[in-house]
Amino acid sequence: MRVIVQEAPFDFGAEAAAFASARHDMGAIVTFTGIVRDNAGGLSAMEIEHYPGMTAKALEKIAAEAVSRWSLGDALVIHRHGRMAPGEMIMMVATAAHHRADAFAAAEYLMDYLKSRAPFWKKEIGADGAEWVAAKDDDEAALERW
């Protein structure tokens, strides 16, 4: 299990390939990548603030829970902070399991918990000013299915 919190971009292809080839007893790898999305065409950047002392610990706890619940062979979480342009990758998760159902479920679990239990806050910077992204009720409700 690996958790990385960094400001710099990461190489999704290299990370996914290394993760997928690390073990030969896992038949299913699922990866998810989150991208800075420009809905209305007015976004110039996304700024992500985090809580340095808490972030890695919170992510490790979430990842460890996923590994134990779905008996994963491995799990990877990379999450960036700082300023990013539209189209840049914000984060990725990867899960390795014997079969795909567990790999998919664990990846969804990781994403649901990363959304509302990892101390990151997104701010959208546009031509007309900046605005904090509000958490959605749906994101909180999504945790209830686990």
Partner: peptide
Amino acid sequence: AFFPPMTGG
């Protein structure tokens, strides 16, 4: 620490 609901992912 005080903060708004988190928006990770």
